[in-house]
């Protein structure tokens, strides 16, 4: 069971890191690597998108290997994360549209917020069942 789990975690880690790498390539490539080549930029975005899909599938694969308590912990965490992401996203957007913040709202801030909220929720929920 542990061996199979490690295999799935490793797979997810690989797809996550390659996804992060393809985000970086698609972001900085046009300016620093291929000088806004008309074919390479959309190609990099398509590769990043496909990599993201494979990352989601690897995550689902790992989730299906969780036992009932782990599934409960992660589902509760996902619920909290989804709710907070909607509330935070709307408030953040309102801050931008009402010009209460200087800079434009960045999607990366929301992505970071989602990641940190999910990690915190999983940590807190796991402690609850210890």
């Amino acid at each position: 069971m542990k061996l199979e789990r490690n295999k799935r975690v490793k797979k997810l880690a690989i797809w996550t890191w390659t996804w992060v790498a393809t985000v970086a390539i698609a972001t900085f490539g046009p300016e620093f690597i291929w000088d806004h080549h008309p074919f390479l930029t959309p190609f990099a975005i398509i590769v990043n998108f496909a990599n993201g899909i494979l990352m989601i599938l690897a995550n689902r694969n790992l989730f299906n290997h969780f036992d009932e308590l782990e599934k409960k912990i992660h589902l509760e965490s996902l619920g909290i994360t989804l709710g907070l992401a909607v509330i935070f996203g709307m408030s953040y957007s309102l801050l931008d549209t009402t010009n209460l913040i200087q800079q434009d709202a960045q999607i990366s801030i929301l992505v970071m917020f989602i990641g940190l909220t999910y990690l915190t929720s999983v940590f807190i929920n796991s402690r609850r069942y210890r």
Binding site: M1, D67, E68, L69, E70, K72, S126, R128, Y129, R130
Partner: peptide, 16 residues
């Protein structure tokens, strides 16, 4: 049983 040790612990402690 095919679950994690944490699950057995939570069941024993009546938390789950």
């Amino acid at each position: 049983i095919g679950v994690s040790r944490q699950t057995i612990n939570a069941i024993e402690k009546k938390k789950f």
